Simulated assay, not measured.
Amino acid sequence: MKYAVIFGANSYEHEISIVSAVVLKKVFRADMSFVYCDSLGHFYLIPKDKMNAKTFSSKAYLKEKELFLKQGGFFEKGLFGEKKLECEMYINLVHGKDGEDGKFASLFEFFKLAYIGPRIEASVLSYNKELTKIYAQKVGVKTLPYKLLKSYDKASLAQDFDFPCIIKPARLGSSIGISVVKDKDELEYAKDVGFEFDEELLVEPFIKDIKEYNLAGCMIKDDFIFSMIEEPRKKELLDFEQKYLSFSGNNEVKEAKLDEALKAQFYEAFKKICNPLFKGALIRCDFFVIDNEVYINEINPNPGSLANYLFDDFSVVLERLARSVKNEKKVKTDFAFLHSINGSKGKL
Rank of each mutant, 00 (worst) to 15 (best):
F110E: 10
K112H: 15
E88H: 10
G102E: 08
F111Y: 15
Y90F: 15
K97L: 11
E109T: 11
K84S: 08
K84G: 05
F111E: 03
S106R: 07
K83W: 08
K83G: 05
K103W: 10
K97I: 10
H95K: 06
L107F: 14
D101A: 07
E109H: 11
Y90S: 03
I91M: 06
Y90Q: 05
F110S: 10
K83S: 14
M89F: 03
L107M: 14
S106G: 15
K84Q: 15
K84E: 11
S106L: 12
D101M: 06
C87N: 02
I91K: 01
K97D: 13
A105K: 01
G99T: 13
L85Y: 08
L85M: 12
K112T: 05
Y90A: 02
K97V: 10
C87Q: 03
N92F: 01
C87F: 00
H95Q: 14
F111G: 04
H95W: 08
K103S: 10
E88S: 13
G96L: 04
L93M: 15
L93W: 01
L93D: 09
F111W: 12
M89Y: 02
K103L: 14
C87P: 01
G102L: 13
K84R: 15
K97P: 04
M89N: 01
K84I: 07
F111Q: 07
K97T: 15
E100M: 07
G102R: 07
E88D: 15
E109F: 09
S106N: 11
K83I: 13
E86M: 08
K112I: 01
F110I: 11
D98G: 03
L93H: 01
M89I: 14
C87I: 03
K103V: 13
K83C: 08
F104L: 15
E100I: 02
E86F: 06
H95P: 03
E100W: 02
H95D: 11
L93S: 12
K112L: 03
E88K: 09
L93F: 03
L85R: 11
L93C: 14
A105E: 02
D98S: 15
L93T: 05
D101Q: 08
F110V: 09
G102Y: 09
F104H: 07
V94E: 04
A105F: 03
Y90L: 10
F104N: 04
H95G: 05
G99C: 12
E86R: 10
A105D: 02
M89Q: 05
I91E: 00
F108V: 07
G96D: 13
F108Q: 03
F111S: 03
G99P: 09
